[in-house]
Design a protein around this nucleic acid. Structure first.
Length: 209
DNA sequence: AACGTTACCAACCGCAGAGCA
DNA sequence: TTGCTCTGCGGTTGGTAACGT
C-alpha cells in the first residue's frame, strides 16, 4: 500500500502513555484547544503521532468523561441503539454523554454481547438466536447491522444510511436534523435519534428512552 | 505458591470521507 | 474535476489484572 504513514514512526513513542505525556497534552489543549492534530504533537512537545494524541484525549483525558460502570439505563440504551444503528459506535456514543465510542465498543464486546447471548438473543441481529441462525447466513439484512467491514461491504448498504461516515456525527453536527431511522423498530421504542452535539447534550441517557 | 486461563481495557492500524488547492 | 491531506471511525491486538485449578 503506497499510503504514507500518518507519522514518522521512527520518531514517535508507542504504547502506554506516561503521566508526563498526559499532562503535556492536557496542558496544550487547555491552552490552544483541539484541532490540527497533525501538528499538535510537535507543538506540544510530544513524541506521538497526531492520531495517538487525539485518541488519548478523546478516550481518556477529556474532562467531560464519565468513566466508571455503565448504569442499567445506559446498558439498555446501548442495546437499543445498537439494534438500530449497528456498530456505529460514534453515533451510539453521541447519545451517551460522557461515554466514548471506544468505551462503548469495548463494553459491548465484553459485557453486552455475552448478556444477549445468555438471553438467547443474537447480538448481531437482535433476533432470538434460533431465528437469527436461520436467517443470518443469507441475509445479514435490515435488522442485522452486520458489522464486519471485511466481509463484504454489505454492511454499508445495510447499516443505517446516515449518509454519514462520521463527520456529521459527533463534531460539527450541523446535521442536527433527525436521522429518519424508521426501521420498523417496533416495540414502541422512541429513541428520538436526532443528532446533537454530545457536549450540548444535557439529556440523560434515560431521557432518550 | 505456581501456573494456566479468562476478562477487560487502552492503544494501534487501516480505511473512508470531507475539505481544500 | 482531480488529487492530496487530514481527521475520524471501526476493527483488532497486546498487556495485564483477576480468577480458577
Amino acid at each position: 500500500m503506497g499510503r504514507s504513514p500518518c507519522c514518522e514512526k521512527a520518531h514517535t513513542n508507542k504504547g502506554a502513555w506516561t503521566k508526563e505525556e498526559d499532562q503535556r497534552l492536557v496542558a496544550y489543549i487547555k491552552a490552544h484547544g483541539e484541532g490540527c492534530w497533525r501538528s499538535l504533537p510537535k507543538a506540544a512537545g510530544l513524541l506521538r503521532c497526531g492520531k495517538s494524541c487525539r485518541l488519548r484525549w478523546i478516550n481518556y483525558l477529556r474532562p467531560d468523561l464519565k468513566r466508571g460502570n455503565f448504569t442499567q439505563e445506559e446498558d439498555e440504551l446501548i442495546i437499543k441503539l445498537h439494534q438500530i444503528l449497528g456498530n456505529k459506535w460514534s453515533l451510539i456514543a453521541a447519545r451517551l454523554p460522557g461515554r466514548t465510542d471506544n468505551e462503548i465498543k469495548n463494553y459491548w464486546n465484553t459485557h453486552i454481547k455475552r448478556k444477549l447471548i445468555a438471553r438467547g438473543i443474537d447480538p448481531r441481529t437482535h433476533q432470538p438466536a434460533s431465528a437469527a441462525a436461520a436467517v443470518a447466513p443469507a441475509s445479514a439484512t435490515a435488522a442485522a447491522p452486520s458489522s464486519h467491514r471485511h466481509h463484504g461491504d454489505d454492511d454499508k448498504a445495510v447499516v443505517v444510511r446516515s449518509s454519514c461516515g462520521s463527520r456529521d456525527s459527533s463534531d460539527d453536527d450541523s446535521t442536527s436534523g433527525s436521522v429518519p431511522h424508521q426501521l420498523g423498530l417496533g416495540g414502541g421504542i422512541d429513541l428520538n435519534l436526532s443528532l446533537s452535539p454530545p457536549t450540548s447534550q444535557p439529556s440523560s441517557p434515560a431521557a432518550a428512552i
